[in-house]
Amino acid sequence: MGAENQINDTNATGALQEDKHAWPLWEVFVRSSRGLSHVHAGSLHAPDADMAVRNARDLYTRRNEGVSLWVVLSDNIIASDPRDKESFFESPKGKDYRHATYYTASEGVKHL
């Protein structure tokens, strides 16, 4: 099986598409405390969004790991192609001048 087939038949997390009778797969994002972003924690199966949130609470926040949850159907995540690594993400390479560390003339100058 070629790489292309594998990619076309799987969603962003690589899971195969589910058949119609099974509970769909959801991705879970947890905000660990106020002021921080939601971060991907894992995935789970649930029949609908309400149950997905409840299951996510039981599965991913048993020890106060979060103050807020997002769930999204795995199929609804659009991901970049892993084979694009080079062409898609190449433009920032060779553009060191986008980083503060590029500018060394100001070394030793205070508050700069």
């Binding site: 799987t10 997390t13 690589g14 899971a15 099974a22 894992g42 995935s43 039981d58 599965l59 048993r62």
Partner: peptide, 26 residues
């Protein structure tokens, strides 16, 4: 009870990991 619930959780984390390889839960 908390420990046994954790074991269920561990099973679910791992089933999800296996699913990313193309195995289905069923």
């Amino acid at each position: 009870m908390a420990k046994v619930q954790d074991e269920a959780g561990h099973g679910l984390y791992l089933y999800s990991a296996a699913e990313t390889l193309g195995a289905t839960r069923d």
